[in-house]
């Protein structure tokens, strides 16, 4: 069978076009789709990396704050008290038994106070061990220690049913925030009573801390303010939770920590 060159050319052209276009469309679609997916994955990975960096920064900041608090407590409280105890002991004159007895009693009180401060520091450091029994129990123990110190009247309301399980990391962040609020009530609020309430629903775990202290003007900006408030806010952001604080001078302080349960 003989056909003209033009017919063969046309046949080849059409055939080539048909059988090139279909795989080409498939390949082009595949390339574009895969590149888009890859770009999306990269964006997700970058976001995740940023989130991890933020988490690390918060963790480092929290650790730094704890170190600062330990250093400050060691220097301002225990160091001072022990210096005073040493000074008092050096001034003991055994030829004057009555004065000596008084001074030794003072030293005894100072050392007792130092032991008390050291226990407080130990509790601050060892949140991991405390949390082994669960958050509910850890809060109870922390408040028991405050109650024993007789500095504040303590009230603790917690539900009979144990709260739903949260991860250890979540528990640590929540407990640290609670410790910070409790520390503020003891150190800055000059309160005589503190009320703590643990409340939970299947979706959420909440800790309410209320004191009858001198109160203050809470900072408007979330990242500013002293007394560890930015650190609490950072921790609660990390937990994707919520931190609210209400206070006015002379009317005490009411703080609430809310953590979602996943």
């Amino acid at each position: 069978m003989q056909v003209s060159g033009a017919e063969i050319n046309r046949l080849l052209l059409y055939g080539t076009l048909i059988f090139l276009i279909m795989p080409t469309v498939l390949v082009v679609f595949m390339v574009f789709y895969q590149r888009r997916i890859h770009a999306h994955r990269q964006a997700q990975a970058a976001q995740e990396a940023q989130h991890q960096r933020d988490k690390l920064l918060v963790k480092l900041e929290a650790e730094e704050n704890t170190r600062k608090r330990i250093a400050s407590d060691l220097h301002d409280n225990i160091g001072q008290v022990m210096s005073l105890a040493a000074l008092t002991l050096s001034a003991v004159d055994l030829s004057q038994p009555e004065k000596a007895t008084n001074k030794i009693e003072t030293v005894y009180l100072l050392i007792t106070r130092s032991i008390h401060e050291l226990r407080q520091l130990a509790r601050l450091i060892s949140a991991t061990e405390i949390l082994h029994g669960g958050l509910q129990q850890a809060i109870a123990k922390e408040l028991e220690w405050v109650r024993d110190s007789k500095v504040l009247a303590v009230r603790y309301d917690s539900p009979a049913a144990p709260p739903p399980e949260i991860s250890h990391e979540q528990a640590i962040l929540l407990f640290r925030s609670f410790q910070e609020l409790l520390g503020n009530a003891i150190k800055h609020a000059q309160a005589s009573a503190i009320s703590v309430q643990l409340h939970h629903t299947p979706q959420q775990l909440a800790i309410y801390v209320e004191d009858n202290g001198i109160g203050f003007h809470p900072p408007v900006d979330a990242s500013s303010g002293g007394m560890g408030l930015p650190a609490i806010r950072e921790r609660m952001n990390q937990l994707e939770g919520d931190f609210t604080i209400h206070s006015t001078p002379g009317n005490g302080t009411y703080a609430c920590l809310k953590c979602p349960i996943r």
Partner: peptide
């Protein structure tokens, strides 16, 4: 192509 559709391990196709 279907197997590598989501191409999680392909950096540059």
């Amino acid at each position: 192509f279907w197997l590598i559709w989501d191409g999680s391990d392909i950096a540059n196709i």
